[in-house]
Design a protein around this nucleic acid. Sequence first.
RNA 1: CGGGGCGUAGCGCAGCCUGGUAGCGCACCUGCUUUGGGAGCAGGAGGCCGGCGGUUCGAAUCCGCCCGCCCCGACCA
Length: 569
Amino acid sequence: MRLSRLFAPTLREDPAEAEAPSHRLLLRAGFIRQVAAGIYTTLPLGLRIVRRIEAIVREEMDASGAQEIRMPITLPAEPWKATGRWQLYGDLLFRLTDRHGRELLLGPTQEEVVTPLVAGELPSYRDLPVNLYQIEWKYRDEFRPRYGLLRGREFLMKDAYSFDRDVENMRGSYQLMFDAYRRVFDRCGLRYVIVEADPGQIGGGVNHEFMARAEVGEDLFVECENGDYLADTEAATPRPPEPADRSDLAPLEVLDTPGTPTIEALASLLAIPEERTLKCILFEAGGATLAVLVPGDREVNEPKLERLFFPTPVRRFEDEDFARHGFVKGYVGPQGLAGDAVVLADHSVLGGKDWVTGANEADRHVSGANAGRDFRVDRFEDLARIREGDRCPVDGGVLRIGRSIVVGHIYQLGTKYSEPLEATFIDEDGGARPYEMGCYGIGISRIVAAAAEQHHDDAGLVWPKALAPFQAVVILANHDDERARTEAERIYEELRQLGVEALLDDREVRGGVKFADSDLIGYPVQVVVGKKGVATGTADLKLRSTGERSSAPLAQVAQAALDLLGAAP
RNA sequence: CGGGGCGUAGCGCAGCCUGGUAGCGCACCUGCUUUGGGAGCAGGAGGCCGGCGGUUCGAAUCCGCCCGCCCCGACCA
């Protein structure tokens, strides 16, 4: 390909709307252009990256026995009502109505399509297992699209769905995907971690997230300093602290604490650290009142709480709830709670004593409150949001929080979709059973962004060769020098003969522009053919990843470039 | 959805406070000179100033409503 003919509009300046490095560089280097919030056109260079990722994904999926299909994006609402997701997904769904008034949606994933498909066509246990996948656009009307390709409203995803006759076989299918995913992300050159993740509100099965490390990542994970524990922050369970020594407890006293409805104000007034206070957060679950206790400097992990009571919905007290139940917001304490309230405490509460907490009347707190003596705890559970410095549940090491981009997520679904959709097969014993399903997603367009986040420097992108849009660029440094032009053409042809996907920068612009663009676009190897070099019979090479330069005789440049490519990451 | 910011030429911005009919840099076109890390000079083209309405003799500028985009946060793969 000749750059003079390639639609690759680079920008000299940073686009104002882009903040994240991947977003900024993908725009600047001419890989994508924005059409609307979270919706992008992929330009030739960007599409070449997408194609490479797709090829890797297809190879590994096919090698695992999965079969590619293509399902529609425009979907009827009925199956989504059957599984409850028409309601559950709420505003996240792009909905439309056709001319006859029928309700449709743009698919955010395709369980509701693939499950009836398989149910209709594979009625026997003899037909199983089967794993069907596709690479297709997905639509989610995100609250807040951001960071370019990282959180789009339209994005390219590989989604696969496995169908098995029983749980054991389903786990086997899951493991195949787990292994395939590792190969995919390894080949894409991503630095990533695999964590067991939050199963989500619908609860249930095992699932793993493949998280590419990145500064701008929206998903947090925790890892032990000793490398023996990894988890999603919402699923992480830290080691509880040593119980406090309770041999010498302070008496319970009531304190006047005017104007201190927040922990911050209270700690400030009493001149005590926030962790000496006890936070008592009220929730309502199925008509019952829940009081959740955490140390004042911690937050309640509401997803964990919800999971504890699933499927009963849990919601935080609103202002009118406080009034109705006779609580004073900002001054709630666990002592003297009615017997019908369930008192839950995070394990970290064990590590403290003589708490300062609400007195259940306005502008009053108590000090010296102790579990068992002054208030009861019905259950100790893991309910506090984890934070940096908490202890590893495996070896007690210090936990750190990392940021990441979720590039893959695999789930053991079980019969979550097959049951409501009445997707059954006839088992060996003649009985009808719902399929045991798994689903497996890879964010293709997200990998483009994640790779860009991980592989860039001040000058631009630095693609690993497995993803690079072209493996090498031949830069004609002096476009009006005939000999240089002839040599550049020849070297470009020779590279192609050697099987290198090369690009010839034959544009009629100054060398400096070409060098800057080459660094910006991020080809792994640059070959510079110019007047000076040609006069002495040489051309120059540069490895983008290290900036290392070398030169080689014109006759050997192509081979030298190939060798250099071999050394490129 | 709450909070904040921004919409002026393809891109990045100034002008707005203090109304008088639009400017700078880059990119683009022509010519000359240049030509190995985003060239110089000269000339040129390009904008219903996000939209609608209002105030005014006159609105990019003041007022109202709407739309779009970005950032932070709600908790979403």
